[in-house]
Design a protein around this nucleic acid. Structure first.
Lengths: 296, 296
DNA sequence: GTGTTAATGTGCAAAAATGCACATTAATGA
DNA sequence: TCATTAATGTGCATTTTTGCACATTAACAC
């Protein structure tokens, strides 16, 4: 028997629906449904009655529930026994991250963090705009930058991949010189425009990625954006252009003073894992190009 | 944390090597090594010292061990709580299966059965020869047959796929009529020889599959064999011939009297799972043909 | 009555886990 | 000294698990 099935079972008992259980566990509701179905088949016993209201525990599930709670207690005790972390993995943890990156990459996985560290009160402070601010009274900062400030300690988890994106209808116009969409901070025409679209006019200047992406999707023009943001939009396409590589990366940082606190270490490790697990998105490996292909 | 990692950890503590732990758990040693490595990384603590003698527990592992045993007790209690099976999933279980099929398909996975049902004393009785005997005082019989005897109850899990096999050096000889290898029970030249190798001489008659396979591999001639046996030998090749399909199948059977006993039901379910999980082997999907290709 | 929300379920694609085959090494026995 | 055995470790292929996108349905609010 896969003991982890009991963990899934317990969450579903408590939440009453595969959707809510999935959110708590940091997985999709389809995963919860499949895991519980497989668990029932393996045990040869139905544990839940299914309805649109959710999953109701059967008598068999009631019989197992207390044992499942015991396993959870033991699992938590194992967690605490590792490195004597017992007193430290509780309290408040503030994480700051760029708004779009947080929404695209971090937030969907935070259910898993809460599951793993139920005694940590997580607070996510987002910053808007591409040019990130210094950490504002946060324990952990996720930063998209070429070089973090000296007073923050951490490492570059992944390089930040950029691409130039446009809407299909814009890209299909043969001969037309598309317009470009820039950030407010870009006073001069950037290199990728001079190099690939000389003479292009600026359709829009914006101060955040969401607006930029929405503008690209609406066909206002082309923009150079990080892949983690643009590739999530299925209606925009990336141009297969040679770009000066970005020197920026995804950094997970904390104040030098805080790096040894257990909950900060746990928080950083978790953020690193979440970022690494979406490497294909961040590195642009999911980009869609015109003609339906993806990059090799 | 994946609670199933604790189950792997516990097995490795007890066995002292990833090879032995893998055998006990019914997985490969590489799986055990990977799971434990990932578990250590996730905990941020080294649990084992590695050497060629095996994996020795660290102090951290010693600290966790008792908790892991507690989880195992709780997991076993959950097993027992399901359907009130407590008193039934213990005792002796005799399984009979054809010698070659048992060795090729069943034995590698029996570690998993012992893991899952530690209180069942498994006894495997093998029968030699292609033509199987009636069940000999066994609870469960795995049979390769077209039609099981009436006093045995069960189902055909998979059809049995056969092929004609030869050694590469035999198959490379252009124009040479290869000789054939038959079973002792085959008094007349079988149809596949008459159809594809008319006039072929018999190089050898044998009474068991292992000898037949060894003879094929040694280049004595061609033989028609079940794929589950031949495809495990990497030096023989299957001929892409049209054969009269075998009417035989892999059956999992038990006496009509015994089919409702919990340990018999558990045993049958497990055998079915093991057989189904090797469908690609049994159905000949792993056959190697001349020229290095595999069948589509 | 209609729109919204939130639930389950399904099929396909992507990601992760596992198996397999092999290399290497050390211990052991002949 | 050499062959055998049994261990760990690695790279690639295969299998399994999970995510994603979508469909459907029911309850609820307006």
């Amino acid at each position: 028997m896969n003991w982890d099935d009991i963990r899934i079972f317990l969450a579903l008992c408590r939440q009453g629906s595969v959707s809510r259980a999935g959110s708590k566990l940091g997985v999709t509701h389809t995963t919860v449904a499949r895991r519980v179905n497989a668990f029932e088949e393996q045990l040869g016993t139905r544990l839940f009655d299914r309805s649109r209201d959710g999953y109701a525990m059967t008598q068999a599930a009631e019989d197992l529930y207390e044992r499942a709670v015991e396993m959870e207690q033991t699992a938590l005790a194992i967690d605490r026994a590792v490195g004597g972390q017992d007193a430290e993995l509780r309290g408040q943890l503030k994480v700051t991250a760029p708004y779009d990156f947080a929404n695209s990459v971090l937030v969907p996985r935070l259910g898993g963090f809460r599951q793993e560290y139920p005694c940590i009160d997580l607070e996510l402070l987002t910053t808007t705009g591409l040019i990130d601010l210094a950490a504002r009274e946060a324990d952990i900062a996720v930063r998209l930058t070429a070089r973090p400030p000296d007073y923050l300690i951490g490492r570059k988890v992944l390089p930040l991949q950029h691409g130039v994106y446009g809407a299909p209808k814009v890209l299909r116009k043969p001969g037309d010189a598309p317009e470009v969409i820039l950030f407010r901070s870009e006073q001069n025409m950037p290199e990728w425009v001079e190099q690939h679209f000389p003479g292009a006019r600026v359709a829009l200047k914006t101060d955040n990625l969401s607006t930029m992406l929405a503008a690209v999707a609406a066909g206002l023009g082309l923009a150079r954006m990080p892949c983690y943001e643009a590739d999530r939009h299925r209606d925009v396409r990336r141009l297969d252009l040679e770009l000066t590589p970005s020197t920026w990366g995804v950094w997970v940082l904390s104040h030098v003073d805080l790096r040894s606190a257990a909950r900060v270490r746990a928080g950083r490790a978790f953020m690193v894992e979440v970022i690494e697990s979406q490497a294909s998105l961040i590195l642009g490996e999911r980009s869609r190009y015109m003609g339906g292909s993806v990059a090799p």
